[in-house]
Write a protein that binds this DNA or RNA. Structure first.
Lengths: 143, 143
DNA sequence: CTTATCAGTTTACAACTGTAGTCACAATAA
DNA sequence: TTATTGTGACTACAGTTGTAAACTGATAAG
């Protein structure tokens, strides 16, 4: 069973996935056109990326006859979560908080997103530690 | 003037940077040992990464005589912010909010981080849109 | 001073990425 | 039925990344 955790989507592939996710399903022609307009890519480039995504089982080919339909196999939400987790997993745990502050400052958030975040934060506040430990070096140095 | 925005640090290089950032400055021996313990890397691997970081001007060699000192040139905070921005720039703006929700849920945050986030969110709530537009396809489709 | 060792520099090399051309075959038009 | 074209498959190729060996010059030990 393929899930987003096991698939690594590269930067270029990500662009194609976004189009497929948003369209729900698409023919190669539609994707080629969208990518050409968005990124200026040649048809070959989009085709290659699409094939690599199929190999990775991030996308599947549907419909028996020739203009095939392409549909996402991995979900957008899960893939985004996996990518974000992957990023933060490679960074210092102690500074994750301030990094998230930066992200929130620079992104547009809907009212619902904000309400959601506020609820989670209120909950987390109840048990939050004074300091998060740095996990960048071996042993348990005080950083 | 080198700033974090212009330097792309790869995953492996990131590990070395974390050690250097945390140590403040270090000799190659210290880094080699730390990386060996943390990642099981051979001395060569750490040396290579260190050199690539010097080339990228993410790290600088200090001290005239042989056991040189290595110090970070780019800051940890700025590098983390750049990496995080880069990630979110490649993802659907509409779903950034829920992705952040996921990140916050899975990370440990200090009281100070939480207070900070709460303040920013309260501020952003005042002008937050009902919906953030999807920016995955050309044109302005309703997604 | 000569030798062994360690730090620093070069070279290596396969896998992965970004970007794209070419080939083959199915569908369609003539 | 044959020629054309659109779509999918295969090939290409340079640059990056992960991982490390080999070489070279500085230091320390004898």
């Amino acid at each position: 069973m393929k899930d987003a955790k096991n698939v690594t989507i590269t930067d270029s592939e990500w662009m194609v996935m976004r189009a497929i996710w948003t369209m729900g399903h698409a023919t190669s022609r539609e994707l080629i056109d969208a990518m050409n307009e968005l990124e200026g890519w040649s048809a070959s480039t989009t085709k290659t990326l699409l094939h690599r995504l199929i190999q990775k089982q991030a996308v599947a080919q549907h419909g028996g006859s020739r203009p095939f339909m392409y549909k996402p196999v991995v979900g957008e939400k899960e893939s985004m979560a996996a990518a974000a987790d992957d990023l933060f997993d490679h960074m210092c745990a102690m500074r994750a908080g301030s990094t998230i502050v930066g992200v929130i400052q620079s992104r547009e958030l809907s009212r619902a997103d904000i309400a959601n975040l506020q609820a989670i934060l209120a909950e987390k506040a109840k048990t939050a530690p004074e300091e998060v430990q740095c996990n960048c070096l071996p042993g348990d140095q005080t950083c």
